[in-house]
Amino acid sequence: MKDERLLAFYENVRHQVALDAGSRYRFAGEGVRAYADKLREEMDRRRLRFTPINWPEDGR
């Protein structure tokens, strides 16, 4: 996967988590978090620069 595509996938998850923070509904659950963690691990391995996801305190 190209670096740009990897960063775009992660950015989309980060954006969804930010939208969820302003809503009473949560769409980014544990499965999404696991997916984001895998993306982050690969981005770290490639030494890409990215903005980390600020996950809510309750883990959702």
Score class of each variant (00 low, 15 high):
K38L: 13
P52H: 15
W55L: 10
G29Y: 00
R33H: 06
W55G: 05
F50N: 06
A18G: 03
I53T: 02
R26L: 02
G22M: 08
R24E: 12
R47Y: 01
A8E: 15
I53E: 02
W55A: 09
Y35W: 15
S23C: 10
D3F: 04
V13H: 08
D37T: 11
E57V: 12
Q16C: 07
D44H: 08
F50L: 05
D58C: 05
E4T: 08
H15S: 12
W55S: 10
L7Y: 04
F27A: 15
D3V: 10
A36H: 02
A21D: 06
R5K: 14
R46L: 08
I53Q: 02
G29T: 10
R5V: 13
D37R: 14
A34W: 04
Y35M: 12
Y25P: 00
L7S: 09
A28H: 07
F9I: 07
D3L: 04
N54E: 15
K38N: 14
W55Y: 04
A36G: 04
N12S: 14
T51I: 13
A34Y: 05
A36W: 01
S23N: 13
G22V: 05
E4W: 00
R33G: 02
E30W: 03
R14V: 01
I53N: 00
G29R: 09
R60T: 10
W55I: 10
E57A: 14
R33T: 02
R47M: 09
L48A: 09
R46C: 04
D37F: 06
H15G: 02
R24G: 06
F50Q: 08
